[in-house]
Design a protein around this nucleic acid. Structure first.
Lengths: 229, 229
DNA sequence: CGGACGGTTGAGTCTCGTCAATAAGCGTGG
DNA sequence: CCACGCTTATTGACGAGACTCAACCGTCCG
């Protein structure tokens, strides 16, 4: 794949939107496209990190492994999003494992390229800082969930978050992955996740149909978490 | 307090180490020193964020509050460290509450100052990115703890982390705050934390004396967590 | 002295995870 | 087209780990 193509892919990523044509070209010189089949491992915990990744299409899961071999999903990366930027800056080994959930097209951008643009373009630095801040913010939310909320509340919170904010009317959403992965993401066993969804269904708040979930009354759902929590 | 003093305080902070004298002066113009008594609240969740903070001396805790009013300690900030940088970039309201644990001297640096330096100095941008990356890395560790480890393992992990890395000999450490706060930090109740420490004492692995804890054999302690998990 | 605070200990409860059995989809290949 | 295996999902019975509630102790401080 030529570097022209890489350039175009880069240009579509939010992180790189404001870069000049020259900067894009420069960056493209440090980039590689990767076509990866579903289920492939990109890197494991402990691997050296020589750059960051971005998803053009497909999905990638970032996971932790317990000593007993239980997998915990940290994040599910969607098209347009990137990952491993933070590790790249620290020069530490990867703290998580990355695996594709679907056949995917990824970009890998070497650290050198990023550092060059960074040195030249203050706006880019701000963009990266903003991106990293969002990550951090998301993690704070996660820790908050795990620490303070019950299984029921975590599921409700997740469902509401999947909705476009401010939806006060009935709405339908599609789970971003299979239920096992979502459960892990929420730090639940698949069994518990299933039971909670049933509970919501019986309470008349949700209608579950495979990965499709219809929420008849988001506001009521939100309240339900507080009482029955 | 004059801006000269602020300049000197800023110069001592790791985050600003590599700034030029002129940049320090500029930054100082946007900074204020704050003397804060123990137990004072700096800001609450939801407050607007107009800049970042750094601790010169004293300690600050960042906490979350559950709807039921239970407090969860996210982080304990020590001298030389900073906080709220990430929120500043997002322009979002504060996601946590900040309170001093001791009489403290803090610096508050307005967002405008940071953005100016950022635009002018690529090295500063890299420093901030590195700082943010470390934060993120720490959060990953936390999530890992909360998700995959038992109470016993969390306590052991915490104790070992407090040791200077690679201590294979008996060592003594002092808890950075009272046991209630540490317990919260580890996502445990004070009762559970106390019980776990007793368990370690009975196993001959730790000797608890108020906030002083002596670990007779860190390596054995590490192993103990895996078996008795 | 009395009270607040920090810490420990015990007894009971409950949420959630574990284990196990059973469906229900789904792609493959005969 | 259906049988087969594999993954995904559901449901039940059971158990364990951590939280809750409560009593109690030591110490510091007004």
């Amino acid at each position: 794949m030529s570097s022209i193509d890489i350039r175009q892919q880069l240009a579509h990523l939010p992180l790189f939107h404001q870069l000049s044509p020259e900067q894009l070209s420069e960056l493209a010189g440090h980039g590689k496209t990767l076509r990866v089949d579903k289920g492939e491992t990109l890197f494991r915990r402990g691997d050296a990190c020589d750059g960051m990744y971005a998803v053009v299409y497909g999905k990638v899961k970032l996971t932790l492994m317990s000593p007993q071999g239980v997998e915990k999903v940290m994040e599910i990366i969607h098209p347009g999003q990137s990952f491993a930027e933070a590790v790249m800056f620290l020069g530490k080994p990867m703290p998580v494992e990355a695996q594709t959930l679907e056949d995917s097209l990824l970009l890998h951008i070497g650290a050198a390229g990023i550092f060059q643009i960074l040195a030249a373009d203050p706006n880019f630095a701000r963009n990266m800082l903003a991106g990293m801040s969002m990550r951090l913010h998301g993690m704070v939310r996660d820790v908050e969930r795990y620490s303070l909320e019950s299984a029921l509340q975590r599921v409700i919170g997740y469902l509401l978050q999947q909705l476009d904010a401010g939806a006060d009317q009935p709405a339908t959403l599609t789970l971003e992955a299979n239920k096992n992965l979502i459960a892990s993401r929420l730090n639940l066993t698949p069994e518990t996740f299933s039971r909670v969804l049933q509970q919501l269904a019986k309470a008349g708040l949700a209608e579950v149909n495979g990965r499709e979930i219809r929420l008849s009354d988001p506001a009521a759902l939100s309240r339900y978490g507080l009482d029955a929590g």
